[in-house]
Design a protein around this nucleic acid. Structure first.
Lengths: 162, 162
DNA sequence: CGCGCTCCTGACCAAGGAGGTCAGGAAAGT
DNA sequence: ACTTTCCTGACCTCCTTGGTCAGGAGCGCG
């Protein structure tokens, strides 16, 4: 239930590529722009390349660029490239688990969790991030002040909590 | 972005407790009912106890029971007890991260991710799981057949994918 | 009281992932 | 040729995951 540094780095590097208009951008520049350890970043970029998110050319004037237009690459694409499937339970997809007895409905909950993650990650594109104009669903989710609290307050509480 | 075995086990054990009407249930019975390694489960139950989710008594006729009514314990409570904060990025809460340059909006996305997770996990209670009647939001999310696919299809695709 | 039952706790362990670093090779340009 | 930049694999340390094992501490009952 946490986002790894690798996934965070991958998205940030991809956004940087999406923002650049000129030709190939070298890894060093991406690393500097987003404060990512260079050698680690190059491993990440390689994975992104293997998954067809990014292309690259070596040599002088070489560098990386997006394989597809920035508005056709979602955050889910990038995260899946470096982290694998989103919202697996016990390293297997939620719909594949057999629950016994009283916890039969639990599978539906994990499926719902995955669906809700997708509803955000598969909708936001790199172009959205560059422009700063996020899709309505993200705007709605971040609109409530509760969304910005580390520990969400219980429904019933009104004013008695600190 | 994955649900650990521990969290899954914890919820299943908690559901089993929620379903039982008679007094304390011993760990062995929970382990058998949900097919969980006993000694591992007892560590988990101990954590749940430390977080005030569960109570316990030793000795003959001892066992575990829920500290609160089943309809007041959410899945989020249980998961947080054993896994810590939900949806941290790089082991820190999303709203606390400083993003530079083009990835400034990324923080909003991670906050939205956390909010969407909460919108499911903080709404489903153990009582819901026992009864099998899940809240509307879960029903909506699992209604679409896409939610049950391992790898979601792209929006534009209609019939050409396998 | 004594004794069995059950939880409680800490130590340990093997395997793998997270988050990198290092050294060298292979293409591209000039 | 030579530099630049990506490409790749090996390696490293620390931490987490998913457990097991051994023993201690409290509870109830005869």
């Amino acid at each position: 239930m946490r986002v790894s540094a690798k996934a965070d780095y991958a998205v940030r590097a991809a956004v940087e590529l999406a923002a650049a208009e000129e030709g190939p951008i070298k890894g060093e520049r991406l690393a500097n722009a987003q404060d990512i350890p260079l050698q680690f970043l190059e491993h990440i970029l390689l994975e992104l390349k293997h998954h067809g998110i990014v292309r690259a050319r070596r040599g002088a004037k070489g560098g990386y660029w997006l394989a597809r237009p920035a508005n056709e690459v979602t955050i889910a694409d990038v995260v899946r490239a470096v982290e694998g499937p989103i919202a697996d339970v016990q390293s297997t997809p939620p719909e594949a688990i057999e629950y016994r007895g009283n916890s039969e409905s639990l599978r539906d909950v994990w499926v719902a969790v995955r669906a809700s993650l997708r509803s955000v990650l598969e909708v936001v594109t790199l172009a959205d991030l560059v422009s700063g104009e996020l899709p309505p669903i993200v705007a709605e989710l971040t609109a409530s002040p509760d969304a910005w609290l580390t520990s969400a307050a219980t429904k019933e509480m009104t004013a008695k909590d600190s």
